[in-house]
Design a protein around this nucleic acid. Sequence first.
DNA 1: CGTATGACGTGCA
DNA 2: GTGCACGCCATAC
Length: 86
Amino acid sequence: MKKSFQEKVLEIVGKIPIGKVLTYKKVAKEAGNPKAYRAVGNILHKNHNLKIPCHRVICSNGEIGGYNRGEKEKRKLLTREGIIIK
DNA sequence: CGTATGACGTGCA
DNA sequence: GTGCACGCCATAC
């Protein structure tokens, strides 16, 4: 059974260690399609699985991007892990 | 199958 | 540095 792009993305994001952040493009590349960063954001947006540290996924320009619980919460979580966002 | 959407990225003015 | 437009892919309907 082939894992859907979503499964790959969720697995990759779920493997992100603390203190480390990946960009949507990087995750998409790891998932198999470096150009699917659009789908990555779409998947994470639809994904309501709190078990996935999706807050460790940020834009390539250093922006937070977004978060289901609010961008403020995401920035707080990242800062709490030692990752300073703009 | 075609259209619409989305937490992006890049290029250009 | 900022703002706008286009392209890109996967998913949902």
